[in-house]
Amino acid sequence: MSATESTATELAAVTPAIAPSAATARRIRRSRAVLWLSLPLAFVALVVIVVPLLGVLPDPHRQHLDQTLLPPFFLDGGSMSHPLGTDKLGRDLLSRLVTGGRLTLLIGLVGTVVAIVPGTLIGLLAGYKRGWVDTVVSRFIEAQLALPFVLIALAIIANRGSSLGVLIVVLALTGWAPCARVVRAETMALRERQFVLGLRAAGASSARIVLRHVLPNLTGVIVVLATLQVGTAILVESALSFLNLGIQPPDISWGQILASGREVLTQAWWISTFAGLAITVVVLLVNLLGDALLSHYDPKKRKF
């Protein structure tokens, strides 16, 4: 669930390196890796956004009680009218997957923004101000990390029930701390850089130094963190939906489709399998992209 958390440790010393000119060729190759990984992701996004608008797929909510649990086309009894089969209410699985991808990707993006923005700001504040502000923030980060996301989700949902809003709150509450930890460490290192002292000597305010000089130099780190957080958010969404704590019918997300396939697993393996495959492929691509970005911004820090 936390690609971000482990990368936090790995990132801890990333400083935006000035690329030595000798490594230019390798750098270009890495940029190419970033491109090649972005393309399939962009393709997935395009498909889930555009295809439902074209009207080529059946209505994902339309029930056909005479066509329940149809297998995919490549199995006996399957047909191209429902290429990936149907679920227990006879709804077209392909159409549901495409439509469900919208909510899943949306949650991936929104869940990232709500985690990375506060995480970055808090990390900047703690790393730049140091002193008691830092002590307090660090304690909060540790306390946050001491509460596994499922526990936080459980504590909130036990009270509020589940909804999209609660899901976003859970993503914000669980995602800011790993990000803040990395940004704090990076900021502390940057603030000791001599150009920061030079700017202070020229009379620049702390706000200007942080926003105009520290933050831009952290772009690479933040891009990597945000990328990995997209994967984390998608996994968290699917896990909570799977536990019936996330997206509730009639809304559709990949996690919710996966969950709905569990009770018919032995009769219709394809429902959970395809939904899980969709999640795995997208998260894997996102994680690969995060890795590629990490080595793009700082080749030394590549781990695998």
Partner: peptide, 14 residues
């Protein structure tokens, strides 16, 4: 005003 040992470190790389 201050000048440091590492001139590259004294300039914002961006």
């Amino acid at each position: 005003q201050v000048i440091f040992q590492d001139p590259h470190g004294s300039l914002d790389p961006r």
